[in-house]
Amino acid sequence: MNMFQNKKKWVALFLGPALLILAFVLIYPSVQTVILSFMDQQSEHFVGIKNYIYAFTNRDMLISFRNNLMWLIFFTAGTVGVGLILAILTDKIKYEKFAKSVIFLPMAISFVGAGVIWKFVYTFRPPGSKQIGLLNQLMITLGLQPEGWLIQGPWMNNLSLIFVGIWIWTGFCMVILSASYKGIPKDMLEAGRVDGANEWQVFRHIIFPTMKPTIAVVATTMVVNVLKIFDVVYVMTNGNYRTEVIANRMYKEMFQYRNFGRASAIAVVLFVFIIPVIIMNIKRMKGEES
């Protein structure tokens, strides 16, 4: 839209406050981080790309990259996929609000609470003694052996952690996707069905194209989430048993080991990873405008 008067004044008034706050709270610390990433532990001497060499060669960092990739694939697919399915399916049932509330519930639980909850799911006790973890009780009921869900890797423990992430974030995806789904005019869906299309065809040709921008927003948010994923891992394994992730590594270097150079370099690596995602979003935005 290009017809308002005093455009500059309105832009300054509308966008100004947000940019000002962001400049202080996020942009200024980010710039400082980039500078610190080339400095030593105490931010006193310039060390060139030493910290970056560490970030790309250290054993724990390499494990983190692998695990973040696993998170990227399974967490994003799980949250967006299940969120989308539930957003559409719950629209068809009478107890919609109740069902959605149940799925949303984990979002309302603090991470410390979530850590305790999943302890009672994954806890391992040796065969022959009373299990207090739900999953291992289930295994025994099925005649199988109990497993150390959070210990045996690399697939089992990482997927167990990722599932906790999915459990928490699916409600988020569902709420946003559901709002978008409900924005599709009912007659549009009905028209498709009257024309004899089955549900899958209605989804592919009407629902999905209409919801695509929202799905992109939700997926982007989840991808960003994955890159920053920290709380779940910190609370449940603290990266032990090779479940380390990049953000937890950064937290340790920063606050426990007080190596500001390394922590900053790891953060800059995160920035770099997000660039393709930003470019995709800009392209999408430009595409929608034309």
Binding site: P29, A247, M250, M254, F255, I274, N281
Partner: peptide, 22 residues
């Protein structure tokens, strides 16, 4: 476009980094 890119890019800033400067 630049302002939008900047704001979306800031999504990824790990909060923990901002504690000390702020």
């Amino acid at each position: 476009g630049l302002a939008y890119a900047l704001i979306v890019g800031l999504l990824v800033v790990p909060l923990q980094l901002t504690f000390i400067p702020i």
